[in-house]
Computed example of a mutant assay.
Amino acid sequence: MMQPPVSLGKNITFMHPAYFIITGLSGIPNIRHYYVFLFFVYIVSVLGNTLVMALIYLDPKLRTPKYVAVFNLAFVDLFGNTALVPKVLDIFLFNHPQIPYNDCLT
């Protein structure tokens, strides 16, 4: 299903699809069993990044620019994983290989 074209000016039109179909995960045997591993990796990632952020926030000696950069990296990794892993789990568990255009853009 295509979205209606959006006019960007004189002769420029931008069209985007409603969703993308992910085909790279269709041939993996026993794909439903990978969610346990993926869920474990997600939990370790969330706990690890939260621990790093808490240590940097709570210790006043770790307020140097180097640790501020590490805090920002942990923050971005935490929210990146929170956006990506649930969609991959949805693909594994419920066989929904579509991802909406706006979700993919995000």
Rank of each mutant, 00 (worst) to 15 (best):
I99M: 12
A69F: 11
H33Q: 15
Y34N: 07
H33V: 07
I21V: 14
K61M: 05
A18I: 11
Y42I: 01
M53Y: 02
N95F: 09
L62Q: 12
P17W: 03
V46M: 11
D103K: 01
V44L: 11
M15E: 03
F94W: 03
P4V: 00
V52S: 00
A74F: 09
H33R: 12
Y101W: 14
F94L: 13
Y57A: 15
N72W: 15
P86T: 04
I12T: 14
N30H: 11
F94K: 02
H96T: 14
S45F: 00
M2S: 09
S26V: 10
G9N: 13
T64C: 05
V36N: 01
Y42F: 06
V6A: 08
I21A: 02
A18N: 02
M53W: 01
L84T: 15
A54R: 05
T13K: 01
N95C: 09
D103S: 03
F14K: 02
Y101S: 11
Y42Q: 06
F39S: 15
I12V: 15
A74R: 06
F92P: 08
P97G: 00
V6H: 06
F37H: 05
N95R: 05
S45H: 11
T13W: 11
G27P: 02
P97N: 00
G24D: 07
V41H: 00
P29F: 03
T82C: 04
H96L: 09
T50A: 15
A69T: 12
L47C: 00
G80P: 01
D59S: 07
M53T: 02
V70T: 09
I22S: 03
M15Y: 02
F75N: 06
I12R: 04
V85L: 04
D103W: 00
Y19M: 05
K10P: 08
L38N: 01
R63P: 02
I28P: 12
L62W: 14
P65R: 11
V52L: 07
N30I: 05
A18Y: 05
A74I: 10
I12H: 06
K61F: 08
V88T: 13
V68A: 10
V76P: 05
K87P: 08
I91W: 03
F71N: 04
V76M: 12
Y42A: 08
Y19L: 05
V44F: 08
P60V: 05
A74Q: 04
G48D: 01
V76T: 14
F20R: 06
A74E: 03
Q98V: 10
L78D: 06
I99T: 11
I12N: 07
M1I: 15
A54Q: 04
F37G: 14
F39E: 15
Y67A: 02
P29S: 13
Y35E: 14
M53R: 02
D90R: 13
L84V: 15
L89C: 13
L55M: 15
F92R: 02
P60F: 03
L84M: 14
P29K: 12
F39D: 13
L78I: 13
V76E: 09
